[in-house]
């Protein structure tokens, strides 16, 4: 235990502090996920419209998000807005903005894909049976689209949880920052703390993401015909 630096975990409230740090990261990702799910559905529906202006704008938005690393977006929002507009955003607000901006685009693309994946004959048969437009959408199209959408959006959620580890780079005190503090504080008494602490963080992130992945895989298998 000593050699691997795991003993540091049980000193004082170190383990609790680590969990608190993970909590902070998860909090940011959950707020961003909630925003992205809501805005993403709206954006996805918007993207199925045939209006050329909407098409061009959403295309540009998607490309920006797809090409720019999230880290660059974080820097742009956190440092850039202060410089250019004089806003004093705190790091957490900046990260929520960035992850929601990114998540909305990804979610929107998934929603669009799910909607257009429902074959045309489904609409036509529903209309032929005399169903109204809203009946068609709510009883025929949306249930099918959702089956395709849910596993994919769960995957997106795990990706967002993983990506929030970046917020440490703009100074949010989350699990990695706390780890660094603990390791620094115990430099003399247990020089190997880095191994134990980073191993723990690794496992913690795995525990946070794995259940989602399994759920997504399970639903995908269950609903695929």
């Amino acid at each position: 235990m000593q050699a691997l630096g795991l003993d540091v975990l049980f000193k004082g409230s170190n383990l609790l502090r680590l969990l608190g740090g993970l909590g902070k990261a998860l909090e940011i990702s959950l707020i961003a996920v909630a925003l992205s799910l809501i805005l993403g559905v709206l954006f996805g529906v918007l993207m199925t419209f045939r209006n050329p202006v909407i098409r061009a704008l959403s295309r540009i938005y998607l490309e920006i998000v797809r090409i720019m690393p999230q880290m660059v977006l974080l820097f742009l929002v956190f440092f850039g807005t202060t410089r250019v507009f004089g806003w004093d955003l705190n790091a957490e607000a900046a990260s929520v903005i960035v992850f929601a901006f990114w998540g909305t685009a990804e979610m929107g693309d998934l929603v669009r894909g799910a909607i257009i994946s429902v074959p045309k004959h489904q609409y036509e048969s529903a209309f032929a049976l005399g169903m109204t437009k809203s009946q068609t959408y709510f009883t025929i199209i949306i249930p099918q689209a959702i089956r395709q959408l849910i596993p994919l959006s769960i995957n997106l959620i795990t990706r967002m949880i993983k990506t929030t580890s970046l917020v440490m780079m703009i100074g949010v005190v989350e699990v990695l920052k706390v780890s660094q503090q603990i390791i620094e504080a115990n430099r003399m008494t247990s020089p190997n703390a880095a191994f134990g602490i980073y191993l723990t963080v690794f496992v913690l992130y795995f525990i946070a993401c794995w259940p989602f992945s399994i759920l997504a895989k399970h639903l995908e298998r269950k609903w695929s015909n």
């Binding site: 993983k162 580890s165 970046l166 191993l199 690794f202």
Partner: peptide, 15 residues
Amino acid sequence: RNTPLLIQLFFLYFA
């Protein structure tokens, strides 16, 4: 697949 690259790098480089 279920851990972030940043954590993986920290583990490889510091741990």
